[in-house]
Amino acid sequence: MSDEIIRETSYDAWLNALEVDEGYYLRGDSRATVPPAVAGKTDELERKTLPETGMVESKTVIRVPHPDFEDAAPYAIAIVDFGPVTLTGQVTGTDPEAVETGLVVEATVLEAEASGKRFVGFRPAGEVSDR
């Protein structure tokens, strides 16, 4: 994908792109971010390709779950550094307790059964996609 000036900063549109492996982030003058961008003029944000993999910076295994995930506990949540941007998401495709700092993951999109809401997920890089 070539870099382009974009005006679309909707969160849902961003998830749609991430879902088909066309993840991106937005680069402004001073910082990089992901939609929905709320700072700066949107026509000054440049759309850049999200690096394919990132590295776990911090992780936890949630034992007392968020109500949207009552049947999913224990599950792992990680903050993952993709270089220009950092994302938060639920880690699947591995034992929650096996998620370690430095683990290399790729971003995906998951959906909560209870709420039907979509969100960022991670899975260890190099695994065969389940799609």
Partner: peptide, 9 residues
């Protein structure tokens, strides 16, 4: 969006 949806308590 970034924390609640993925199930961060």
């Amino acid at each position: 969006l970034h924390e609640g949806r993925p199930g961060l308590t």
